[in-house]
């Protein structure tokens, strides 16, 4: 019996199961941590424990420093879509719908999801590595010993900044996206700017914009919270910081795709 156990423990099946179990445990722990920190952050916000100076600093990081990348990614996406479809649509007599298509696509989907991806790769990763570094160099321990709650000091301003800055970023990036789509469509086809923008107007619905803004709030909050939590959970040295950053990026990506699915089902189905 003993021999069988030893043998089994060496087998690939066992090791595979073990890795799966560890991964699952890690998944559940992370989920729990996110929920716990999220609740605590919410409590701090509700009881007004907010350092506005820090919020402004983080907001500029979230909203201003990320703008060039966000704008480029969102407008590139619109330009690519416009270039792919404009010529063909005009040929098939659908020239009046190019603007509508680009506007609808940008407002409903590509604007927010591409801004989300840009923010994750720029801001989310930097939040996570910043907090993870503080964790592994005992700076977070120092915060606690000095009698300050690390969640209040680190999470609250970042989560507020993420939540508040995502909508403006989205609006600016989407505007550029639609403009970019116009430039591309007129460049590759006979379409005039006037025709494009008339059609854009018919594709913009207040309802869509409202949903997009709601998404922006939720995604911004999610990205900031996940990135901070993953950083906070870092262990070990430089390697731990790397692992935490990767985890923050992967989790944020998956989370906003899941949110996107939920929003699509809830509002457009």
């Amino acid at each position: 019996m003993e021999q069988i156990r030893v043998f089994f423990k060496k087998s690939a099946t066992y090791q595979l199961l073990q890795i799966l179990a560890e991964q699952f445990e890690d998944f559940i722990t992370t989920l729990g941590e996110i929920a716990q920190r999220g609740l605590k952050t919410l409590m701090c916000i509700l009881t007004g424990q907010i350092n506005w100076k820090e919020v402004i600093e983080q907001s500029s990081r979230f909203g201003v420093s990320s703008l060039p990348i966000t704008i480029s990614i969102v407008s590139m996406t619109s330009i690519i879509v416009a270039m792919q479809v404009a010529g063909e649509m005009v040929k098939q007599g659908g020239g009046n719908y190019v603007g509508l298509l680009v506007a609808m696509l940008t407002v409903r989907e590509t604007g927010i999801i591409m801004s989300g991806f840009a923010i994750i790769s720029m801001i989310g990763s930097s939040l996570a590595s910043e907090i993870a570094t503080m964790k592994v160099t005992e700076q977070i321990d120092a915060i606690s010993v000095l009698g300050v709650d690390p969640v209040r000091y680190l999470f609250v301003p970042r989560v507020i900044a993420g939540t508040l800055m995502m909508p403006p970023v989205l609006i600016i990036a989407s505007t550029f996206g639609i403009l970019g789509g116009g430039v591309a469509s007129t460049a590759v086809s006979e379409l005039s700017y006037k025709a494009y923008f008339t059609s854009v107007w018919s594709g913009l619905f207040i309802y869509d914009i409202k949903v997009a803004l709601a998404k922006a709030f939720v995604y911004g909050c999610t990205i900031a919270l996940i990135s901070c939590t993953c950083g906070y959970m870092a262990k070990g040295g430089a390697k731990g910081v790397g692992i935490a950053t990767t985890k923050a990026v992967v989790w944020s990506f998956v989370a906003i795709v899941i949110w996107d699915l939920i929003f699509s089902v809830a509002f457009f189905f």
């Binding site: 910043e130 503080m134 160099t137 005992e138 321990d141 120092a142 915060i143 000095l146 009698g147 300050v148």
Partner: peptide
């Protein structure tokens, strides 16, 4: 209060010396 001087200092590297020293007084 319980104060601790950490083995590897653990200064806040995003804050200057002034803000490091008064951290507790400002944040509490």
């Amino acid at each position: 209060d319980v104060a601790m001087v950490f083995q590897y200092s653990a200064l806040f590297d995003s804050l200057n010396v002034h803000d490091n020293i008064i951290f507790a007084l400002q944040e509490r």
